[in-house]
């Protein structure tokens, strides 16, 4: 069987499932649904299943991409439906198809941030947010394997727009770099917290909406 690709969402309580646990959860769900994953050959065989862009804990997504190989031939819709009835709350397969495009062609991500302001007037914050992201450089301290280092996140944000999301809530709509380099949206919050505390939210959470190729066509 060729490589299957599925697009799934991870929302609600499932956003707290870590990347590693998600891999395991998916494997079990596939087996509960009555399918069997193909294993790699070799001394230390491992199941052929991978996720394009690991999602950090706490972030939700409507556009996760997972590739896998099964031992049997399946109909895409049947696979999707059976898998959906075997998944925990908050994970839903949206579409299953044969993988054609290379995962390495993923470039941009559309994310939606929910910025919560407990006791500030959102209408006053809004223009300042827009102004903040008009800067040339937005340096943030970022933890990496080699310790703390400073990165400029500005070039990784292709566009960002803010709108009111009701009482105390600002919605951020951003197009950010998904790969080479990868921007973790939490750094957007971190930038506000360190550089401009008066407009930093009390809490922010992000959701992935869509993945794109370099030419801004949706990745499938």
């Amino acid at each position: 069987m060729n490589k299957l690709r599925m697009r799934f969402s991870k929302t609600g309580r499932a956003v707290y499932i870590s990347h590693l646990d998600l891999m395991h959860t998916m494997q079990r769900a596939i087996s509960r649904a009555g399918f069997s994953l193909k294993y790699s050959e070799g001394y230390n065989p491992h199941p052929q299943i991978s996720i394009a862009l690991p999602l950090s804990v706490g972030m939700s997504s409507r556009c996760e991409i997972m590739d896998l190989r099964l031992n049997e031939e399946v109909s895409f819709d049947d696979f999707r439906d059976r898998l959906n009835s075997s998944l925990p709350e908050g994970i839903e397969v949206l579409e299953v198809y044969e993988a054609e495009e290379k995962v390495s062609s993923v470039k941009w991500l559309r994310v939606r941030g929910t910025l919560e302001y407990d006791d500030r007037d959102v209408l006053q914050v809004l223009p300042k947010l827009t102004e903040f992201f008009e800067r040339e450089n937005i340096p943030v301290m970022k933890k990496s394997k080699r310790g703390l280092s400073e990165t400029d996140i500005r070039p990784m944000i292709r566009e960002i727009r803010f709108s009111s999301g009701g009482e105390g809530i600002v919605i951020a709509d951003a197009l950010i770099s998904a790969a080479e380099p990868t921007l973790n949206p939490d750094l957007i919050t971190a930038a506000l917290v360190t550089i401009c505390p008066p407009i930093a939210p009390d809490f922010a959470s992000y959701e992935r909406m869509e993945v794109f190729k370099p030419d801004m066509e949706a990745f499938r």
């Binding site: 609600g12 309580r13 499932a14 707290y16 499932i17 870590s18 646990d21 959860t25 079990r28 769900a29 509960r32 804990v57 706490g58 075997s86 998944l87 925990p88 709350e89 908050g90 809490f203 959470s205």
Partner: peptide, 18 residues
């Protein structure tokens, strides 16, 4: 919702399992 991102292994506190 605000606490969970700060603790270790938050999914043990959420329920929602299969």
């Amino acid at each position: 919702k605000r606490i969970l991102p700060r603790v270790q292994k938050p999914s043990r506190y959420t329920g929602g399992e299969y």
